[in-house]
Nucleic acid binder design. Structure first.
Lengths: 209, 209, 209, 209
DNA sequence: CATGAATGAGCGTTCATTCAT
DNA sequence: CATGAATGAACGCTCATTCAT
């Protein structure tokens, strides 16, 4: 029952408190009591909404990531050109992480370990995000913008990893610079790497994205 | 003495046992007693060589990564062409991870958290690996092979992240495919993305690497 | 909260169990689990009321000694004559220790070490007991019963030490005799030692105290 | 075999190092390794001379106290007058403790606990010191200097306890005053308390002791 | 629904002691 | 005799989880 998708206000309250607490001290260093204090509820209350501490972390990942992916998909659907989509995706990703640095910290720094034990939670992984990237690239291939001879699964991982590491580095730097500034160069690098040779031209500016 | 680089046989024995144990169950799930059993020593013995469980993890990272980076540098030093260097670096990275999957698991899945608290251990981070990547790219620019208008720090992170994610995905897949097969497409993607426009040609094969 | 003087029933329950356990086997030989078993609570519960095993010992000393001193003060306040006060104090001290042999054992046998590290806990020491002794003697001096040329701080220590050793010897003997029987001779010895020369008379009996 | 009284130089070396170490940090807080370092020997060597850490502590107590008592006995044997003997005993006790503050710390602060578990070691206790005190007092009674109606066992404990507490207080004060200054007042108090009524006179000075 | 006192399994670490050299 | 690396039993403390109110 705790895993039902009910958007209970208190459930969200607890998740947000958990994000803040996890971001500050890391998942393992954070006690349920810390989350409870941060949320202004009793420790026991958390177990009315989540079956375990692990479930809390996984739920955060699941629901928040789901939200981002859905949001990204919606925003990108307006756009027709695959290259522009790619640019926008990179930009959106970095922008959202910059807007939600606590969430970013949880994703970037706690995710790996989570991915480990989340092997058991198939729905939790990043497959649908990889799927989104794949769709865009395939779209670009259909549009004749991107090369056909791509090892798609390699490209998807490469792009995700590049964005991911960009965010991680930014976090570990203490967030001392504007993360979205990395979007242009990053997208540029990949688009050049993927572009159909016959279409080689100067990269246009990212302005307006 | 504990932190000194002394190549004590028993110290190495313990580190290897720890890598195996951490890889299997994750750092937090692994008890010191597990490492001891795996190493065939008493639990107390571990504390003759490492000051804490954390120190053990950090030492693994520090010393093993250091070894890889030194090894990579040596092997690449023979090569003159920056593009070939890049290809070889990607290939070496994936090859070594495939050769040492337990070590890879520890690096990929426990590293992030480690990076988190390792902020306090300046020597422990990946700076020198980023440095190696940067040197290769700058070399390529000097050779006129790679574009001059690169945002170097973005490129370094992107390349590292791409390789890193490639390894992680392979691990989480259960190591069901040959990781080195990803080297070619991955290197190709980046070299195309970085290459001087005037030099655009078909990518040559990775054969011989 | 832990250190607050709240008369929590469970807190007292734990302290009493600890006294019993410490008395039986000594502080260091007693495990928290022993105290918990004796108290009929879980080990973790102890840490809801005391911050550490040391805190438990110190709290026993602090609160129980405080209780005794307050009690002694009250009982002695009714008495006017300083010599009688002194007799009563010695008797009360021995009587209470005989009534609470477990507590006595903890005080006598664990106290010294405690005094050692309790240097850091100013409120914990015996100052107020020494103070009580001092007040009685000064009172006797004002009454003209006791000599004026006393080295007060030496006398206080001597009296306390004499009573203290009397209790310790009794404990180490296995409590094979009536401790209060020592009160008369002990008080007699000190009163004779302190008495104004001009008042020398036969010591009256301790009967009635 | 380790308990043989052989005055091995290394045995003494270790005991002295142990006294220093125990005095500094307390018996329980001191590791065998600390004693070994202080003594300049290997940890294992200690076990060639003492069967256990406890044996080391007990041996210190046993042999050092024995030495003091023998020494006291010798020095007092020259003296005929029991009152003077008593004065000298108090002075000697305080003087020796002041001369050997580390030893004093071990005796005063670790002794009680030791006395506890030393019930099992009958030869270790203070009986012979109590015996010495008793002999002096009985001598005084025979000389007609001290009252006959004394509860001897009470008096012995009282005197020992008074001296003992005087030393303990001095130690806990941080040894900020001259301990031997307490000898006069302390002896005076007891001699007055013990003296035959018919002999009441002004106490002579302690000068010359 | 909410609470928070109580639980108790779990583990990192210490250190007295041993023994092969 | 001396060493000191190795041992492994022992334990204080934490904290996720439960449940009576």
């Amino acid at each position: 029952m705790t895993r039902s998708g009910k958007p209970s206000a208190k459930r969200v309250l607890i998740m947000d408190a958990a994000v803040k607490a996890f971001a500050q001290n890391g998942y393992h260093q954070t006690r349920i009591a810390d989350v409870a204090r941060e949320a202004g509820v009793a420790a026991g209350t958390i177990y009315l909404y989540f079956s375990s501490k692990d479930d809390l972390l996984i739920s955060i990942f699941q629901e928040k990531v789901q939200g981002f992916i859905t949001d990204f998909r919606n925003r990108l659907s307006r756009e027709e050109n695959a290259e522009v989509k790619l640019k926008k995706l990179v930009h959106l990703h970095l922008f959202q992480m910059q807007q939600h640095p606590d969430l970013a910290a949880v994703f970037q720094l706690e995710l790996r370990q989570s991915r480990h034990f989340m092997s058991a939670y198939p729905k939790v992984d990043l497959k649908s995000y990889f799927g989104l990237i794949g769709e865009i690239i395939e779209h670009g291939q259909e549009q004749g913008l991107l090369r056909k001879d791509l090892y798609l699964s390699a490209v998807k991982k490469a792009l995700f990893g590049a964005i991911d590491e960009t965010v991680t580095s930014w976090l570990l730097s203490g967030r001392t610079y504007d993360l979205t500034h990395m979007a242009g160069p990053l997208a540029d690098l990949f688009i050049r790497g993927l572009r159909e040779d016959s279409l080689r031209t100067k990269m246009e500016d990212m302005s307006g994205v």
